[in-house]
Design a protein around this nucleic acid. Sequence first.
RNA 1: GGACCCGUGGCCUAGUCAGGAUAGGGCAUCGGCCUCCUAAGCCGAGGGUCGGGGGUUCGAAUCCCCCCGGGUCCGCCA
Length: 654
Amino acid sequence: MERRVSENPFGEFRRECRDLLLRVLEKISPDLMTYKVALEIPPNPQFGELTSLICFEASKYLSKPPLELAREIEAISKSELGFFPLLESIEAAGQGYVNFHANFERLSSLTIESAIALDKEYGYVKTEKPEKIIVEHTSVNPIHPIHVGSARNTFLGDSIARILKARGHSVSVHYYVDDVGRQSAIVAYGYKLLGRPKPSSKPDHFIGAIYAVTNCLLEIRRLKKLLERSKDELSHDEAQRIRNILDDWVAVAVELQEKFPDIFSSLLEAFEKVADPESEVNLLMRNYEEGDSEAKELIREVSSLCLEGFKQTLERAGITFDSWDWESDFIWSGDVARCLNALKKTPYVFRSGDVFEFDAESVARDFGLKEALGMKKNYEIPSLTLGRSDGTTLYTTRDIAYSIWKLENADRVINVIGIEQRLAQIQLKLALYALGYSGKAERLIHFAYNLVNFPGQRISGRRGRYITLDEAMDEAVSRAYEEINKRSADLTEEEKRKISEFVGIGAVKYALIETDPLKPIVFTWDKVINFERNSGPYIQYSHARACSILRRAPRRIEEADFSLLKEPIEHEIILLIARFPEIFMEAADNLRPNIIADFANSLADKFNAFYASLPVIKAEPPELSNARLMLVNATRITLRNALFLMGIEAPQRM
RNA sequence: GGACCCGUGGCCUAGUCAGGAUAGGGCAUCGGCCUCCUAAGCCGAGGGUCGGGGGUUCGAAUCCCCCCGGGUCCGCCA
C-alpha cells in the first residue's frame, strides 16, 4: 500500500464521512444538502467512530421516521463506499443514527505513520491565517513573590503562547511591570526606611516581606487615626466596622512579626519616628510619576530587585518572555497623558469633583455593545475614575495607553488577567471604542481565570498570606526526588535531580492548567502535588514507559502491517492519536489549554491499559510486535507533543 | 441591592458554546494483580433526583424562565 502522511488523520476520516453523506443525501433529495452536516463522536465504539444526527432533523422535512431515512442512507451508501478508503461501513442504528465505522487497517496506518513521520510537528496543524499575537501574562506586581495563585496565570499564559505558536502564529510574550501604583511606592518607602538593605533571602521574597509589613503598619496607623479623629462623627455601627477591620490588620501584624521578626521590628521602629508615613508614600508616588530622579532611582531599584527574583523562579519553571514592558515608561513618554487628553475630548468624559470620570455606560449604549460584552440591557456599567485628585494616574487609565501600544504592534492581544478585573477590562475596552479604535478594541481579548484560594481564606499579597511558587516547586520536586530515588536507584545523582525537577514542576503545572480556568481552585498540597492518575507525572510516566519499551526493543521498526492491531484498546489509542490534531486546533482557536491536559490524560490512560494487558516486544508473531512497536512510538510522540504544549517536560526515564 | 461566573456520587472534575444512544474520569472505600517491556501502574465492586421547580423538544446535564446556594465585581486599589 502506498504510504501516506496526513497532518490530521481523523480529519481525513471526517471529511470522507461528510463527503459520502453529502453524496447520498443528494441522491435522496438535493434539499437535504442544505442541512448542517455535523458529525459527532459517538459515546461508544460499538456505534462507530463518527455519527450523524441528520435523520432526526430531516425526518420532519421528508415526513419519514428518522430510522427509515437512516436505513435508506445505509443502503445507498453501500455502492459509494469504494470511493472512501478510510470507511469500512455505514449503518443505521438506534432511533435514527447513521454510524460511520472506520477501516482500521487504513486509519491505523495513516495515523501511526503520520505521527512518526511528522514527529515533533505531529498534531500542530498550522493555521491558514497566521496572526501577530501578543500574549501578556503573569505581570505580577514587583512587590511580592509569584504565589501559587498567580502561577495559574503564568502557566495558563505560557501554555496559550505555546499553543498559538505551534498553530503557526507569530507570538510575542509580554510581561507588564506595574511599577507605578501606590503599592510600589509603599514597598519602596519601606525599603528606604530600612536603609536600602541588601536582600538577606531570595530578592522577591525579601521585598515581599518588606511590602507586607510596611503595608500592614500603614493600614493600622491609618485606621487608628480614622477612629481617633472622627470619634464623635462616627455612628456606633460605623466605628465598630472600622474596629473590626483594624482587628483584622492587627492579626496580620502578629503573623508577620512571627514570619519576619527582623524586618518587622526594624520597620516598626522606623515608623515611630515618622509623623505621617501616609503622605510620604503619596509624595513618593507623585514624584515617581513626575520623573523625579531620586524617586526613579529608588522605585526602579526595588522593582528590579523583585524582578530578579521572578526571573529566577520563571527560569526554573521554563517560562520565558520576549518583552518586559515597564508601566512607568508609558507615563514618562507622555503616552498616558496623550491618551487621557484624547479621551477628554470625547463626549464620554465628565468632571466629578476634582477628577474626570469616563462614562463607560454611554459608550456601550451608543456603540450597541452591551450584548456583545455579555451584559444585560438594563445593567448600568459603572463609570471609571481616570485619575487621582492629586494629579497621579490610575491603573486602568495607564492600561488604556499600554493596550493601544500593544494593539499597534499586533493583530490580536491576549491579556491573561484574573476574572476579578473583568469590569475594569470592559471599561478599558469601551475607552478604546470611545477613542475611535473600534477595530483595535475587537482584537483585545481578556483571557479570564479564577482565583486559587486556601481552604477558608483568600490568598493575599497585601497581608503576606500566600504560598510562593518557589515553595510549591521545592516541595513538589523534593517529593518527586524521594520517589525517583526509590524506584530508579541506578540513575546518576544528576539524572535524578534533573528528572525530579521535571516531575515536580510538571505536577504543579498540570494541576493549574487542568481545571477549567473559570472555576476557582481550593489549594491543597495533595491536589497541586499529585503524582497519581490524572496528573502531570502520570502522563510523564506513561511517556517514560513508552520510551522504555522502545529502548529495549531489539530493532528499530520503520514499517509494519497495521491490520494486525485488532484489539479494542489498540483501536482506542489509534483513534486518540488520530484526533490529537483536531483537539489541538480546538485548543488553539478557542484558547482552551485545559483540553490539552484532558487529552493527554486520556491517552495516558489508554496507553497504560494497553501496557498492562498486551506484550509489545515479546508479542507473537514478530509482525505483530513490529506493529505494536510503531504504535508505542506514535503514542510516545503524541504524549510528548501534548506535554510540550503545557510546558511540561517529557522525561525518557523516571 | 445590581451584574457576571460557578453548582454533576462523601470530595474533586469532563461533558454545557454548536441538545441526541447506558452522564465519562480521578480521590477516598472495598476486593484482586509484580519469577513477564518501570506497580507514579493495571483489573474489578459499590456509590448519581447532573442545585430545585417550571417550559421548549420526538429527545435536556446541555436551550429559555423563575428560585436556591457559593464565588467575584460594583475603589481617587491593582
